[in-house]
Write a protein that binds this DNA or RNA. Structure first.
Length: 311
DNA sequence: AATGAGCGCAACCGCTGTCAG
DNA sequence: GCTGACAGCGGTTGCGCTCAT
């Protein structure tokens, strides 16, 4: 027989998480580490299913998350990676430290898609849209609906993969190709679609329609309490100190440094704060909790907990 | 000031692969 | 080997906010 159900789904809460729930989850993860999500809600005193707890932690509470809008460079990275990987958001997110697949997916659907369409670029194929292509697509969809089983990007990849069998891999020509991307392609055997005109148009777009944001303006120095978030809440001085302490070597950013190297913003990760006010406020619960604050403070400040893979 | 439309994002849903029992 | 939970993933939904009218 299999395992016990993760939750009976009866009487479980759904919808937005409250600050109190966040506090409980953070407390539990800090104390017990990240394991066995099935047991987390019960042990943490939450009326949520384990899956919901995992998502909340992964997408919002994780201490290594960046908050705020994607930078220009990150947007370009997303577009480039999407051209290669398609809607594999988790793969894309793995190349953008501190960003979640959900965040990137949302940003793609709400911002980047529109920009690309506005530029006349198909956000699915990353090819220039033309009337001919549109008409051809419409005609095909009307006449041969059964042949549309593969998405354009899949078909593209299939063709390229076939081509790849017959020739040496081509060097990608996208302007912000990175070794990490190359690595991803090696893993996934995906070739880069080459659309110079597309990239030129994108560069044009980013300079014309998006204010140039210097990475240093986005990545806030840890000594400052300034935040990019629109949140109206404020952090305490207590928090900033302990956040500095939490910038521990156990957060392995180094494997993604090659991405940063391409944008002349090396070492920014070292100096930036990783959390916005909302997150800091959540951690304030842990620190300033009158009931068990002392214990949890010790847990938070105990870098060995991090070193032993609690996160 | 009221309200309706549009937008952004957090969270949920459902599917799939993996692995424990 | 089978069953079913877990973890991860991509797609979708719904709520709250903003802005135009």
């Amino acid at each position: 027989m299999g395992r016990q159900p993760c939750c009976d789904k009866v009487g479980l809460k759904k919808g937005p998480w409250t600050a109190e729930e966040d506090k409980k989850l953070i407390n539990f993860i800090l104390t017990n580490g990240q394991c066995c999500w099935r047991a987390v809600p019960k042990l943490a005193g939450l009326l949520r299913c384990g899956k919901s707890c995992r998502l909340r932690w992964t997408n919002y509470l994780r201490p290594d998350l960046k908050r705020g809008l994607l930078s220009e460079y990150e947007e370009k990275m997303v577009i480039d990676l999407h051209a290669q990987l398609g809607n594999r958001w988790s793969k894309i997110a793995s190349h953008l430290p501190g960003r979640t697949d959900n965040e990137i997916k949302n940003h793609w659907n709400t911002h980047i898609k529109k920009k690309l369409k506005k530029m006349g670029i198909d956000p699915v194929t990353h090819k220039l849209l033309s009337n001919a292509i549109i008409e051809q697509t419409q005609t095909q969809s009307e006449q041969e609906p059964q042949q549309q089983s593969s998405s354009p990007i899949e078909m593209e990849h299939n063709v390229e993969f076939e081509n790849d069998k017959n020739k040496e891999p081509q060097k990608p020509e996208t302007s912000f190709e990175s070794s990490t991307i190359t690595e991803a392609k090696e893993q996934d055997q995906i070739m880069t679609p080459i659309f110079d005109s597309t990239m030129e148009l994108m560069n044009e777009l980013f300079t014309e329609e998006v204010p140039i944001i210097i990475p240093n303006e986005i990545l806030v120095p840890s000594s400052s309490s300034t935040t990019t978030s629109t949140s109206s809440s404020t952090s305490t001085s207590n928090s900033s100190n302990f956040l500095e302490d939490l910038l521990l070597p156990d957060f392995d950013w180094s494997h993604d440094n090659n991405i940063e190297n391409n944008s002349d913003n090396n070492n920014n990760n070292i100096n930036m704060t990783l959390w916005d006010d909302d997150f800091i406020r959540s951690w304030d619960f842990v620190i300033n909790d009158d009931d068990d604050g002392d214990m949890n403070s010790r847990v938070v400040m105990d870098s060995e907990s991090w070193a032993y893979g609690l996160f």
